[in-house]
Design a binder for these strands. Structure first.
Lengths: 135, 135
DNA sequence: CAAAGCCTTGCAATGGAATTGCATTGTTTT
DNA sequence: AAAACAATGCAATTCCATTGCAAGGCTTTG
C-alpha cells in the first residue's frame, strides 16, 4: 500500500513531510527516536518531526516504547491500529549492547491476569538483553 | 526486618538518609518518582535523593519502571533481588486517571518466548488503564 | 588516637529531550 | 476568492536526569 493511502486511512493529510517520514519508517528494522529521525532528516525541523511522530502515534500509525535510557522509540504499527486503540501488543526488545530497540511483531504478549476492577487499555512490554546480532 | 538490616543485606551503608528513604518506601502503596520523593522530603537535597534511589536500584533494593509520561517510578523490590539480578518480574499498572503507578507483585509476567539467539536479562511490563479506585 | 582513604552529601551547573507559543505558510471548505 | 482550518518553522521554555566538585563523616590502619 502506498504511503498516501496509509495516511488517508489513518485520517492524516498526506503532506510531503509525513510521506517522507512514513516511508522512512517503513524501511526501518528497528524503532527510532525523535533524535535519530532528526539525524537522518538534516533539513527538517525538529519540532515538525516531533509533531509528525505524535500525530502518527495518536492516529494509530506508529506506537512508541521508552527504552532503557528513557528515550522514546517509535515504530510503525504492524496490526491494524486506529485512533481509538493500539492492537499491536507485541514484545519489544532493547539490546544493551547495540542499544537498539526492536519490535518483535511475531511475538505477542501473552494474555495477562489483572486484579479485580483494573481495566487495561494498553500494554507495553520491554525485554532487555542481548540481541542475536550482538551475541 | 529493620531498615538497617535490609541495607546491610544489600551492601549499602546504613546512613540516615538511606534509612529514611527506605522506611518511606516501605510505607508506599504505589511507585514513586524522584520528584515525588523530593516533594515529601523537603529538607533533603534532590541529588542526594537521586543517588539514594540509584544506589538502591543498583543493589537490588528497588526497581524502576518508566510511566506513560516518561517519568521513572521507583518501588521496593518484593522478591529477593540483589546486585546482579532483579527477580521481581511482576506487572506494573499505570492508571491514566489518577496517574499513579502501582506494582502488582502478585501478578507475575508470564514466561515469554523470544526469537532465537535473543538473550533476556530483564523484563519490564507496564499495563495502562484505569485502576480499581478510579473506576 | 591520628592520619589517610573512601563513601556520602550538598550545591551548582550542565545536558538532553519533550513540549509549547506564535507567526507563517499551505490546504480545504464554502 | 474568502474564510477556516491544519501543518510547518523558529524560538523559547520546561522538566528531568546527570555530572563535577568541594565539604563532611565514617572506616580503616598504623
Amino acid at each position: 500500500m502506498k504511503a498516501q493511502d496509509i495516511l488517508a486511512r489513518h485520517k492524516l493529510q498526506p503532506t510531503a513531510m509525513r510521506m517522507l517520514v512514513l516511508s522512512y519508517l517503513q524501511k526501518q528494522e528497528k524503532a527510532i527516536s525523535l533524535s535519530g529521525l532528526y539525524d537522518d532528516f538534516e533539513n527538517a525541523d525538529r519540532t515538525t518531526l516531533y509533531r509528525t511522530l505524535k500525530s502518527f502515534e495518536e492516529n494509530g500509525l506508529v506506537h512508541s516504547i521508552t527504552d532503557k535510557k528513557g528515550t522514546v522509540q517509535y515504530a510503525l504499527c504492524h496490526a491494524d491500529c486506529d485512533v481509538h486503540e493500539h492492537n499491536d501488543a507485541h514484545i519489544h526488545f532493547y539490546c544493551t549492547s547495540c542499544e537498539n530497540t526492536y519490535c518483535l511483531p511475531k511475538f505477542n504478549i501473552p494474555s495477562l491476569e489483572l486484579p479485580k476492577n483494573f481495566q487495561k487499555s494498553e500494554v507495553k512490554l520491554l525485554v532487555e538483553g542481548v540481541c542475536d546480532q550482538c551475541q
